[in-house]
Design a binder for these strands. Structure first.
Lengths: 223, 223
DNA sequence: CACTCCTTTTTGATTAGTCAAAAATTATAC
DNA sequence: GTATAATTTTTGACTAATCAAAAAGGAGTG
């Protein structure tokens, strides 16, 4: 149980582990972790061992990694900082929603709890960040909404955009320019299973998205 | 002229060099630099060589260091970021003036120009930070005011506190608790050259400061 | 079971920044 | 002007994080 500095690097590994363990089965493979962080598998292995020694992750060699409770709590707090900062940059500093991710990625590692507390207060204790992602509470709770990936919606369905979980600035710009912003109401015109695409009516215009793109947009049904 | 990453470490060396070259004669000694940054002289020497190779400092071995124009510009920009952040933390996030220095010390290395520009605008293009230090303009100009160290004021003089250039939180708390805040008007009661102290009337109370403490407080004369 | 393929781990090297301690240089004192 | 003190530089070693490439492990196919 060696004591470990919570460097930016360590925090980024924790965040990636949290994200990856929530999609698909729980255990995270070294390869997936390495890809998510743009490092070689060897680098990932060595950091995994470091995290395990510090009691932040369980590691069964050749099988997979998983955060411990301690590691999970730390990771959630990094996510909380990130999302509060994003919302702060948009609501207070009036930055564009597509440029705040990169900025928050830097700030999340250096901003103190004191500052996060004050931002949270100034923002009125928000529950969602500018992309519709839930902001964990100060004691580490996520409030998840029952949302549906746009890629799985049927023709004729009227839905409301609730979350765009892509951090790529150009995708966000594209979405916005076609009326796909949080809260916008759109209607699914048709699906094409062979083309793996879905066509929407949004903002007086028709737009077709591939399933993978549509998968990154989550919606609520509108009756 | 090796290209150099502007890491936090490098920026801190540049900032320290800027500060030290403005007090006393221009050249900065390795020892003073090391002390300012709490590193050993050997560490300072090695970073000085790195800075010199990158064209950010001139180094004459065993004599001293000095920033080049390029290094100077970079250093001033770090100071600008620091002071805008400090003011932002006090004015927008309502933090205490004594706790913002440490926070800004971290943030100054990661906040983007975009964010600084927006903070600057939101604050109304300020010229002074919460401690009365001038904020350099975006093109690197300092607007210095003609101030006088409190330690050199004569008995009977009425003065206004204009700058408290100490980054130590407990000193700032102490000053504030005795009415020594920016803009406060105080009167010098007497000096004692042997005791190296100066006694002031401030806020209905009398307070005596040693010359070194009083030296960190700068004032304007009030007629 | 044996062979291949893919993934993971290990090994050895590299870089930035640091320290401790030895060596070199400059400054001070008598 | 030589000895001593103080400062600066050099040297060698260490840590965190990384990569490239070699070695080891596991899974699937026949």
């Amino acid at each position: 149980m060696t004591q470990l500095m919570l460097t930016s690097t360590v925090e980024n590994y924790l965040k990636a582990l949290l994200k990856l363990s929530n999609q698909g089965e729980n255990r995270v493979s070294t390869g997936d972790l390495a890809k998510a962080l743009h490092v070689t598998p060897g680098s990932a292995t060595s950091m995994i061992k470091t995290l395990a020694e510090a009691g932040l992750a369980h590691h069964k060699p050749h099988y997979g990694v998983l955060l411990t409770e301690k590691g999970h709590i730390l990771a959630v707090h990094v996510v909380r900082r990130h999302r509060i900062i994003e919302l702060f940059l948009v609501n207070v500093l009036e930055m564009e929603w597509d440029e705040v991710h990169a900025e928050a990625e830097q700030l999340e590692h250096v901003v103190s709890d004191e500052v996060i507390t004050r931002m949270d207060k100034l923002l009125g204790y928000p529950t969602l960040d500018p992309h519709g992602d839930p902001i964990p509470t100060a004691d580490g709770m996520f409030i998840e909404r029952p949302l549906h990936p746009l890629s799985q919606c049927e023709a004729g369905q009227r839905v409301q955009v609730a979350r765009i979980s892509d951090q790529n600035s150009s995708f966000l710009k594209f979405a916005e320019s076609h009326g796909l912003t949080l809260g916008a109401t759109i209607e699914v015109q048709r699906r094409n299973e062979h083309a793996e695409s879905i066509t929407l009516q949004s903002n007086e215009e028709e737009i077709t998205l591939g399933f993978t793109a549509a998968n990154r947009i989550e919606v609520e049904f509108v009756k």
